[in-house]
Design a protein around this nucleic acid. Structure first.
Lengths: 229, 229
DNA sequence: GCAAAAGTGTTGGGCCTACACCCATGC
DNA sequence: GCATGGGTGTAGGCCCAACACTTTTGC
């Protein structure tokens, strides 16, 4: 308290979206000011004095991109003194997921100049140390989806089983045996199979729809169940 | 940049120590000033303008407790506006491990008034939200030691196998089958068995000493090996 | 009827668990 | 010689991976 500190506090958010056609994307904004004017960057900004870090993330996302997220989790705090060339800015990075339905709508409309979804296979260069942050987020998502049911947050509320399969196959970057995968997932007992069938996509047989049952999952968790895919 | 922010940035460190006799302990300091004067708290303090977060942790630990740590990892950032009653202080919490040899020496000498090791079964009330931080650190340590070889950082360089066994048994809070545990660990191929035997403890047969081979571990990692206990 | 995707069972092998007796040391 | 902890192998069950044909739909 004797010395006055000169460090600013910001939050940044890596937001993932998914749909069957385009795979996994993340949300970036185009910087309007120097430094890195015109570069793509992760959305974020300074924390207000009396708001929580999570509120700051949601506010900045709303302001900069109009996106509302579905799941939010703290990722890591980046605090190297020189990560911003002007002054010291500490950034608490979060990672967020939006569900497939919202994502598809956003993807269609948000061809604005300033905020855009990029497929994770085709990412541009990023400003500051944002590539490090992004790499960490992807790694975390991959690691976490195998021992926690966060993959469902990226899908629609009701989804055909093949969507789940494709999501895991895409993110884990390996082929998945359809029969074994289904057995394993269904044995967890956290998916409800609905009567409803998916609407036809124009080719092939439409599949049954499934729904992640969060209440059941919470219950099983208390009884010591162990989610793993 | 238009508005001036009024948030201070601190780091805190949960430091774990271990030896065979006393089990797992953590390092706490007694607060000298209000608020919570006289309470026990996690060591930490404000980050200087031009030092990295990790440097800040090591400096504060040195100043407040004289401890040098062996392993350091970022845990979580605690940023609720009201976590400190006076003003807004953001804390990036780290967790650290000291090895058994150092710990035993420190434990013996540091009966000072201001810094003390507490067995994790017998923790006092803590200042601020430090109990939350501590709970998270313990959870992280437990979870992480089963899929990354950080347990070795708590042991001496050379250790009898039973130390490793006891460490896991204590932290995971369940009995471990000696034969199966040894088979599983040795099959990983990252422990060297030394010729040397442990010095006798006064009763029972002395065991062989083992050493964690970090280089081998790194190599196997690159080849896609998967540590798990 | 043909192309595209969904649905569905069995078998073999590997891994994990359970389990008990002998050995080296200090006193 | 006795108490204490260290060292070691096997057998059964379960889980996981591999694998292919039939069904439904749109055109």
């Amino acid at each position: 308290m004797k010395t006055t500190q000169n460090i600013k506090v910001a939050v940044d958010a890596i937001v993932f979206g998914y749909n069957r056609e385009e795979g996994v994307s993340i949300l970036l904004i185009k910087r309007k000011y120097a430094p890195f004017k015109g570069s793509w960057a992760i959305p974020g900004g300074f924390v207000l004095d009396n708001e929580s870090l999570e509120d700051a993330v949601e506010r900045e996302l709303q302001e900069e991109t109009g996106v509302q997220i579905n799941y939010l989790e703290q990722l890591y705090t980046f605090g190297q003194p020189k990560r911003d060339p002007r002054e010291r800015i500490l950034s608490i990075a979060y990672f967020g997921l939006v569900n497939s339905k919202q994502f598809s709508e956003l993807q269609a409309t948000s061809d604005a100049e300033d905020a855009k979804w990029f497929n994770i296979q085709m990412l541009p260069e990023l400003a500051f140390d944002h590539s490090d942050i992004l790499a960490m987020a992807i790694q975390r998502l991959r690691a976490k989806m195998i021992y926690q049911p966060i993959g469902f947050e990226l899908l629609e509320n009701k989804f055909p089983f093949s969507d789940l399969e494709q999501l895991y196959s895409t993110l884990l970057d390996r082929p998945i045996d359809r029969r074994n995968f289904k057995k394993k997932v269904m044995k967890l007992g956290i998916l409800d199979e609905l009567e409803e069938k998916a609407k036809s996509t124009g080719s092939g047989r439409p599949g049954n729809l499934f729904k992640f049952n969060k209440a059941t999952y919470q219950n099983l968790l208390k009884k010591g169940m162990h989610f793993e895919i």
